[in-house]
């Protein structure tokens, strides 16, 4: 108990010291590459302790589409649809890979992209400002980035989801209730014996593998509520696949970035709007809502930072939503 108090006090002191130099998403940033200034800092809210972390490889099987990414010309954002999707019969399947991480403790859990976690853990460790700024730049430049941040069992019995719908950030809550059916199959995942279970969620049929020897009812993304940690999950069509590749002791607590511009919304409305926009492209964005654009290049295309807050990844791979409804 004493050890826990000391650890908690240490993290609290570290966080309070490092948050003063930690900046996120300053609104109205210029079109130049983002410079992290001391004056524009955001803080964290502490959500809970983390005891362990699991790194998941998230793969999406998709296709090369004919739709071109967007391009800005001055104050006009124009979406150009190029040639139609590549005709059937042609082999244009690709596999996009994301690195994600689940932090969990005895009560709560957080699931997010690994690059975002890296920024938080650098801040947690009191890393120098330029190191944190570089980690932010890695996010801006990354071609593959998992936007949503999911807090499981926060509030108790519910999930809180922070997500991005260009040009804004949003949050909503939903209940953590999945109806699971246990299967008979067993296999080893990430070095742990796992049992099979199935559920329906978001318009997809999910098959997961959970480890009864890891007493936690959480899992990747929004999947959870089993008597063991979910280490692998795949939808019935084989499009979305989460696989645990590492389990280790946690390095920092579960935190939530403060974002005054985050809008509260309802889950169903958000899912429908995101589907309608085709993922995070600049489709159907009112141009008057755009105040600034910054373009970053990478070897896989590029990214566009809109209003200094949200990033659009330019890609000609078809976006396939995790939730259909």
């Amino acid at each position: 108990m004493v050890r826990k108090l000391l650890v908690t006090a240490f993290f609290a002191l570290s966080l309070s010291a490092s948050f003063t130099v930690y900046a996120q998403n300053p609104v109205g940033a210029s079109a130049k590459p983002i410079q992290r200034e001391k004056a524009k800092v955001a803080g964290y809210d502490r959500i809970g302790d983390a005891l362990y972390e699991v790194i998941y490889e998230y793969r999406v099987r998709t296709t090369v589409s004919g739709k071109m990414s967007t391009r800005s010309e001055g104050s006009t954002i124009t979406v150009r649809s190029g040639q139609p999707e590549i005709p059937e019969g042609q082999d244009n399947t690709v596999s996009d890979t994301y690195s994600t991480i689940l932090q969990f403790g005895t009560e709560r859990a957080r699931f997010l992209d690994y690059l975002a976690y890296k920024v938080d853990s650098l801040a947690c460790a009191g890393a120098p400002e330029d190191t944190i700024a570089k980690a932010y730049n890695d996010i801006d430049r990354s071609a593959f980035y998992f936007d949503p941040v999911i807090f499981q069992n926060w509030p108790e019995g519910s999930m809180t989801v922070d997500d991005v719908l260009v040009p804004g950030t949003f949050t909503y809550s939903e209940n953590m209730t999945h109806e699971w059916t246990f299967g008979d199959d067993q296999k080893e995942v990430c070095g742990y014996p796992c049992q099979e279970a199935k559920t329906s969620y978001g318009g997809r049929e999910w098959t997961v593998w959970f480890a009864p020897s890891i007493p936690s009812n959480v899992g990747p993304w929004k999947l959870g509520g089993l008597p063991g940690l979910i280490l692998e999950a795949q939808d019935a069509e084989g499009i979305h696949h989460f696989t645990a590749t590492a389990l280790r002791k946690a390095a920092c607590p579960i935190v939530r970035v403060q974002d005054a511009g985050r809008d509260k919304t309802q889950r169903d409305r958000f899912i429908q709007r995101k589907k309608a926009s085709g993922g995070n492209s600049l489709n159907n964005i009112p141009t008057e809502s755009i105040t600034s654009i910054a373009v970053f290049k990478n070897d896989n295309g590029g990214t566009i930072k809109v209003n200094g807050r949200v990033t659009v990844r330019m890609t000609n791979h078809t976006w396939i939503p995790l939730e259909l409804e």
Binding site: E57, V94, S95, D96, T97, A143, F144, C190, G191, Y192, A244, T245, A246, L247, R248, K249, D299, N300, G301
Partner: peptide, 13 residues
Amino acid sequence: EVTVTAPVVKLRG
């Protein structure tokens, strides 16, 4: 603590 061997080959872009 476990680290699974990385996949032999990965293609990203």
